[in-house]
Structure formats: structure tokens, C-alpha cells
């Protein structure tokens, strides 16, 4: 744990990472994220450097989206798949002068690293940078204002997925406009030895938000949460993460399996739902007109909606918004994404 957190912070284990679930109260942290801006300790995301003469060709082969022309001023979210088309992880890929830097999803670093090393070519160097780099995030409709006060207002208006190598307090950092929640989002990749200083400086402008509030806000805009959505024997098509795969690309690991799953038109599909007073466990049965048609992927209590919000994986013919279904005796309604409209969509950066 690189960053210092207030007394009373509640931690949880997610994959290979121990992360702050909440610093004070989920509801309060969520509300600040949606209304103003929060700081995010993303040290549970592992940074992996892909270098060597074959770096770009290798990345092009292991990432499901096209990164051939990913310059050092851009980043891109992509899935990493295995040969069977199953999701290994969802990464943020940063173009670098001498290769790429991959940022894993929370707690998935060890699994991703193992996969990359297993499929690596001889002319590729894969280096775990988690001992010397970490990630701090900012997210919220006014996160751009924090960037201005903390570093430089010019950075706040970078286009989505633009990257800038910049300097904060004499420390070289990688700054990127990203976002997981539909709100304005930024990430700062910082050397470990300076991370505490940058974190503390950030907290002079905003309060922190834990993983629980972040994941709730991600769910609300249907941003995939790999640790919760890729469990079990599910395909990309069943997860509904097609947009993180570029099937027009010539080749990548898992492409044939993904195309086969797509063309078969078989399997289940994922749809959001809300309703009910209790939060069903993953695997809880979903009924339509009294018939078992699928199961709950995961669900939480939504602060914004004031009810249960979750994802269900149901037969493809019923994966549509606006249907009345039943989960553990409670009436639920399937939803149109996004389930909460981010405030950032109506607030310009000034």
C-alpha cells in the first residue's frame, strides 16, 4: 500500500490487490463522485511495460483492439483474450516511445502478467512496473477544475484518451484523460516515491472515493467490471463487451473464438435491471412469466436510483430493456443504459 489513507478506511481483497473499499461512507463518496470530483487510489491496477523490438507487433497480437498506431499521446481501453476468446483482462493501453504500457483492471495484474509471459515472443520484454509506478485517478463532473488547480488547466481539456507526459512538482508523470464512470476522468501515472506527495496534494482539492463507489458508478454507465462480469465460462458476446474488441482487425489472440460465438447467435446476453428491496447474490435465478430464463451476474444497492441495481445474464431473446422480470420473488425491470446519466454530459469544461 503506497498511499496513506485516513483511519477507519475499510479495505478489501480484490484478486491480487488489497484496495480501499471506502474511506468513510459509500453513499457520501458516490454522491461526491457524481456531483463534484473525487480522488481514486488506483494502486490495485498493475502497470506492465511491453518493450523490445517486437513490442508493437506483440501488443497488436494480444490486445483485442487495434493498437498498431497508438502513439505516445494516446491511450485506449481493450480486452485481452485467451485462445478460447475468454477475457483475461480489460486493460488501458498507453502508447510509449519504446513500446506500450498496459494498466490492468483492479487486482488482475498477476493473471495478466502470467498470460502475457505465456504468449510472448522472444523479441519482447515484459516488465512488471508495479514496484516503481502507481496510478492515481480523478473522476467527477468537476474533475477538470481539480486538474487545473493541481497541475495545469491546459491538461483538463485534453481529448478523451489523450495522453501527455508532463511534470508535477519536478516529478515526471504520465497524465491521461480517461474515465470509467461517464464523468470527466483523468489518470496520473507517477513514480512510487512521489505517489504519496501527489496523493496528498490531490486531497487538498478533493476527497477520496473507494472502490465500492467507483464500481457502482461504473455499473451505472455499463462500463464493464471484469472481476465481477467475466467469472465463469462466458464469452465476450455474452458479457456485451463487443466494443472492447475490434473484429475488423486482421488477427489477435481469441479472434476466431469470438467470431464463432458471435456467428452462432447462441448463448445468453447481459442486461441491466433494477427493483426490489434486497440485493440478490450472483447466480440468483431470473424468471420471466414464471419461467427460469437466466441468472444474476451481480447486483448492488444503487445510491442514485434508491433501489437494487444489477446485471442479469438471460436468454438472448429476453435481453432487452423495458421488461418486467422476477428475481428472488421481487419484481424487477430491465433497463436502458446508462442507468444514471452522468452530470458531465451536460457540463462543459471551462
Amino acid at each position: 500500500m503506497t498511499l496513506t489513507h485516513p483511519e477507519g478506511t475499510v479495505y478489501g481483497q480484490m484478486g491480487d490487490a488489497t484496495v480501499p473499499l471506502r474511506f468513510t461512507d459509500l453513499s457520501a463518496e458516490y454522491q461526491v463522485l457524481r456531483d463534484r470530483a473525487v480522488a481514486l487510489d488506483l494502486s490495485g491496477h498493475t502497470l506492465i511495460e511491453i518493450g523490445g523490438p517486437g513490442a508493437v507487433d506483440f501488443a497488436q497480437r494480444v490486445l483485442a483492439r487495434d493498437v498498431e498506431y497508438l502513439t505516445s499521446e494516446r491511450c485506449m481501453m481493450s480486452l485481452v483474450l485467451d485462445d478460447d476468446g475468454r477475457v483475461v483482462d480489460q486493460v488501458l493501453a498507453f502508447g510509449r516511445e519504446d513500446g506500450l504500457l498496459l494498466e490492468s483492471s483492479v487486482g488482475a495484474g498477476a493473471r495478466l502478467l502470467e498470460h502475457l509471459r505465456a504468449v510472448a515472443d522472444e523479441d519482447v520484454e515484459i516488465v512488471d512496473r508495479s514496484a516503481d509506478l502507481t496510478v492515481i485517478g480523478l473522476e467527477g463532473p468537476y474533475a477538470w477544475g481539480v486538474v487545473g488547480r493541481l497541475i495545469d488547466g491546459e491538461l483538463a481539456s485534453l481529448p478523451f484518451e489523450a495522453v501527455s507526459d508532463t511534470v508535477w512538482n519536478d516529478v515526471e508523470i504520465v497524465f491521461a484523460r480517461t474515465g470509467f464512470t461517464g464523468e470527466y476522468g483523468y489518470q496520473m501515472i507517477v513514480p512510487i516515491e512521489s505517489a504519496a506527495d501527489l496523493w496528498n496534494a490531490t486531497l487538498e482539492h478533493v476527497t477520496p472515493s473507494g472502490q465500492e463507489a467507483l464500481e457502482l458508478a461504473m455499473l451505472e454507465v455499463r462500463q464493464p467490471i471484469p472481476r465481477l462480469e467475466t467469472t465463469g465460462d462466458v464469452t465476450v458476446i455474452e458479457i456485451g463487451a463487443n466494443w472492447l474488441v475490434d473484429v475488423t482487425k486482421d488477427e489477435f489472440v481469441g479472434k476466431e473464438a469470438v467470431l464463432a460465438a458471435f456467428e452462432s447467435r447462441q448463448g445468453r446476453r447481459t442486461v441491466g435491471f433494477s427493483g426490489g428491496d434486497t440485493v440478490p447474490e450472483p447466480g440468483a435465478r431470473v424468471l420471466a412469466g414464471g419461467e427460469d430464463v437466466g441468472e444474476v451476474v451481480f447486483a448492488v444497492r444503487s445510491v442514485g436510483l434508491g433501489t437494487t441495481l444489477g446485471l442479469a445474464r438471460v436468454e438472448a431473446g429476453l435481453a432487452a430493456a423495458g421488461l418486467e422480470l422476477t428475481v428472488e420473488g421481487a419484481d424487477v425491470t430491465t433497463l436502458t443504459s446508462p442507468y444514471i446519466v452522468p452530470k458531465s454530459w451536460s457540463i462543459p469544461i471551462i
Binding site: 478523451f160 456485451g240 466494443w243 435481453a319 436502458t336 443504459s337
Partner: peptide
């Protein structure tokens, strides 16, 4: 290939 839930702008 486009899913019903797929965001249109940004991501």
C-alpha cells in the same frame, strides 16, 4: 456487432 447497451460517444 454493436450491442444495444453500447455507448455511442467517447468510449
Amino acid at each position: 456487432w454493436i450491442t444495444d447497451d453500447q455507448p455511442l460517444f467517447g468510449r
